[in-house]
């Protein structure tokens, strides 16, 4: 923080020195201008008012991946008290990490789903089968649908989960699907790997 402040101040010192003292910008001096006043009536610049709204992508409601027969509602997810990400309550329903971007918004949106339950396949059981080019649809609460294209599928050990690549802030819209994979550690009651599908808007 302190470093940032010092650098900004140093930059400022140089920049302010470049603003001629005669400029009205060097408060509050004035300078004559040679531009004639607009003939009759106000100029468009007089009436300008900046936009004060922006289009916010609606929250996701449903996930569809035809290539692996996924069609599921999406549960909103947050973080657990221990700092780990919460996972869907049901193995048959996927979830959206709601403290991050929405699918289609700038940045990485993250959807999670179980590969299995204790008894059978989960909603993301076949997600590992996806190949680059497969299409992923996200239906939103406002009735719109976002379309994404798979660009790569990776399997990583849980001990080296790439938090920075999956969640970290960038402004490029992307979609990450996360589930479990690899061999099962019966003693820990957990799979040893995670499968991550990276997709981009199509």
């Amino acid at each position: 923080m302190a470093v940032a402040g010092r650098v900004l101040l140093a930059t400022l010192a140089v920049l302010v020195a470049t603003v001629p003292a005669g400029s009205a910008a060097a408060r509050p001096a004035h300078r004559a201008v040679t531009v004639p006043a607009p003939p009759g009536g106000a100029a468009p610049v007089d009436g300008f008012r900046s936009v004060r709204t922006f289009d916010l992508v609606a929250e996701p409601a449903r996930l569809r991946i035809p290539a692996v027969q996924v069609d599921t509602a999406l549960q909103r997810l947050g973080r657990r008290p221990d700092g780990t990400v919460a996972v869907p309550d049901s193995p048959n329903v996927a979830g959206w990490y709601a403290q991050g971007p929405r699918p289609g918004q700038p940045g990485p949106a993250v959807l999670l789903g179980h590969v299995d339950s204790v008894r059978g396949p989960g909603v993301f059981f076949r997600v590992e089968e996806l190949s680059p080019g497969a299409v992923v649809y996200v239906d939103r609460v406002d009735g719109t649908t976002g379309s994404f294209r798979v660009v790569r599928v990776v399997k990583v050990p849980k001990t080296s989960f790439p938090t920075d690549l999956v969640y970290s802030p960038t402004l490029q819209p992307s979609l990450q699907l996360v589930t479990c994979g690899g061999t099962f550690d019966h003693r820990a009651g957990s799979y040893r790997d995670n499968v991550i599908v990276y997709a981009v808007p199509s």
Partner: peptide, 25 residues
């Protein structure tokens, strides 16, 4: 980046209970 990173989930998601471990593995 640092502000957002400080709020990110830690660890890896636990999204499997092993019922299909024979196939998944």
């Amino acid at each position: 980046g640092a502000t957002v990173a400080a709020r990110l989930p830690s660890g890896s998601p636990q999204t499997g209970l092993g019922g299909m471990a024979g196939v998944v593995g």
